[in-house]
Amino acid sequence: MAHSHSHSHSNQDENARRLMLAFAVTATFMVIEVIGGLISGSLALLADAGHMLTDAAALLFALLAVQFARRPPNARHTFGWLRLTTLAAFVNAIALVVITILIVWEAIQRFRFPQPVAGTTMIVIAVAGLIANLLAFWILHRGSEEKNLNVRAAALHVLGDLLGSVGAIVAAVVILTTGWTPVDPILSILVSCLVLRSAWKLLQESVNELLEGAPVSMDIPDLKRNLCRSLPEVRNVHHVHLWQVGEKPVITLHVQVIPPHDHDALLGRIQHFLEHHYAIAHATIQMEYQPCAGADCHLNELHSPHTHHHH
């Protein structure tokens, strides 16, 4: 690593501070929106509070990830506690789906039996929610030059949330000007779709990680081809296992090579290639001079449709 350790720590502290602030703002207003939604009878506000819950949760996971990344691995948890945030994200995604179903169900009831909605209370709280979102987004976005995935994801969440607040404001304006209350459940369903979208994405990502799936952005056949192309000594790459712990990709692979003069130098070049091109810092490489005899070595070759003629 080029920079000193203290620098990355102060950066982490800065990230943690931003996330903490944004979390405090979002969580506070979520509570206010729930209370406001119950008082005014507005479902759109409650749906937006559900959306804010997704934000608060995203911010909390990001914060936990920063904290847990600091805890050193031990003999029992050799990767540290990074997976805990993945598990939390999974639970959060399921909770969001449940919230969405409840809100849509309630909206359908309201189409059948319209409820009175206090437009003034609703608009005041919706506008306050919008301001809270803008504030949280500003807090996070100042940190965007730091390419922390969690902080970026949280900022995107908050941006999606702005739409929810706008929806609640539109519903309030319509109710105040025309008195047409069905606009409230209609917009609450729209906001619920937003919530469902982020929940679905979260569910996909966390399940992929919990099932030891390869990071979606990485193409293993492509990695194998590039490695053979870039390093002339490398004849064949097989038995590749790639997975993700927290945000860190981890890889194990067998590499059949032409016997090198300097074994360690070649190993170093393979590691550098993986780190440089694929940002994989944690690689376990088994170098072989003969074709691999292991029965399971050709698993990858058989199941991957891309690797027919590339050797």
Rank of each mutant, 00 (worst) to 15 (best):
G143V: 09
L102T: 13
G119L: 03
T121V: 08
T181P: 11
W180M: 07
P182W: 06
T85N: 01
L156Y: 10
L176E: 08
L135H: 04
C193M: 15
K147I: 09
D184A: 07
F137D: 14
L87Y: 01
A168P: 06
Q109P: 12
I189R: 15
L156T: 09
A95S: 13
P182D: 13
L130N: 12
V170N: 06
A172I: 03
V158P: 03
A89V: 10
V124M: 10
V191I: 15
L84A: 14
A155K: 01
F113V: 15
E145P: 02
G129H: 12
S188M: 00
D161L: 02
A153V: 07
E145L: 03
A107N: 01
V191F: 08
N92T: 00
I101R: 02
I125D: 01
N150I: 00
N150P: 07
I99R: 00
A132K: 01
V183W: 03
A172W: 01
F113M: 14
L84P: 04
A172Y: 00
A154W: 00
R142T: 10
S188C: 08
L140G: 09
S188I: 02
A89W: 00
V166Y: 05
F137G: 14
G164C: 10
T121M: 11
L162Q: 10
R110I: 10
T120G: 13
R110Y: 11
Q109K: 08
A95M: 11
E145F: 05
D161K: 04
A128V: 15
A153H: 00
I169V: 02
A128D: 08
T86P: 00
D184P: 13
N133I: 08
T177W: 12
V104W: 08
A107V: 10
W180F: 15
K147L: 12
A126D: 12
A154C: 06
A89C: 04
N148Y: 12
L96H: 09
L156M: 14
I108F: 06
S165N: 09
R142P: 08
L135A: 15
F90N: 11
I125F: 00
E146Q: 14
R112M: 14
